[in-house]
């Protein structure tokens, strides 16, 4: 059974007075453990698709299923719990909470799931060590470099041991070298830990680690090819 299955997805929203048809009948299947790169010009619906994949938003019509469970049937709170447990997000702008230390940022998803304090702290330290930030645990985001912030974000995405990592332009704000380490980290999550990784990206380097590349245009899939 595929991890994620989308069929005939449409998404309309209103921007001021005009209706935007962000997705127009999109089909997509994502298997457990693969790395998928989503590409396309801006306005092609990449971000909207990401939001639907991560249960941040619901489609206007069509069928979306996560692990065999239809997203349309879930209440808002159930969607929250689903993304808390099964989805980890990595954003282009890192999106760390500026007032909290690296460790607290990583703990955040566990706090909302009610994980006990001691277990949470241990897990956060383990994850920060895993992404190479063992010595940055108490630093606030503004005391960290861009690459370090993105690694904190990856550690946070892994906090609740999710099935899938959704990364929206994870290297967009980083130089090539730092971007490279981030991509390597994501690749290892798939290879070593069997995580599913979906990358929205323009970065040709990012495409290289993907097992499959999907191109979007005007809210539809226009090309799908397997990377060698």
């Amino acid at each position: 059974m595929p991890l994620l299955e989308l069929a005939g997805i449409t998404k309309d929203y209103r921007l001021g007075k005009t209706f935007v048809h962000a997705l127009r009948g999109l089909d997509l299947t994502i298997e457990q453990g693969e790395i998928v790169a989503l590409m396309g010009p801006s306005g092609s619906g990449k971000s909207t698709l990401m939001h639907i994949l991560g249960a941040l938003d619901t489609p206007t019509s069509g069928m979306a299923a996560f692990d065999g469970q239809s997203l349309q049937q879930l209440s808002e709170n159930q969607l929250v719990t689903l993304r808390g447990r099964k989805v980890g997000f990595v954003f282009q702008t890192f999106n760390l909470v500026p007032t909290l230390s690296a460790q607290k940022n990583v703990e955040l998803p566990m706090i909302f799931l009610g994980v006990p304090k001691r277990k949470r702290a241990a897990r956060a330290k383990e994850l920060l060590t895993k992404v190479g930030l063992a010595d940055r645990i108490r630093h606030k985001p503004n005391e960290l470099s861009g690459g370090e912030r993105q690694r904190v974000a990856i550690a946070r995405a892994l906090a609740n041991n999710p099935e899938i990592i959704l990364a929206d332009e994870p290297t967009g704000n980083l130089d090539t070298e730092t971007g490279g380490t981030i991509l390597e980290l994501l690749r290892r999550l798939s290879v070593d830990d069997g995580k599913t990784v979906v990358l929205v990206t323009h970065d040709p380097e990012a495409v290289r680690i993907a097992g499959r590349v999907i191109r979007l245009r005007d809210g539809r899939t226009v090309e799908e090819k397997a990377n060698a």
Partner: peptide
């Protein structure tokens, strides 16, 4: 920040 917290599992 509210958006981030909601994305990582905060309920309303």
């Amino acid at each position: 920040e509210i958006g981030i917290m909601k994305a990582v599992g905060a309920k309303n």
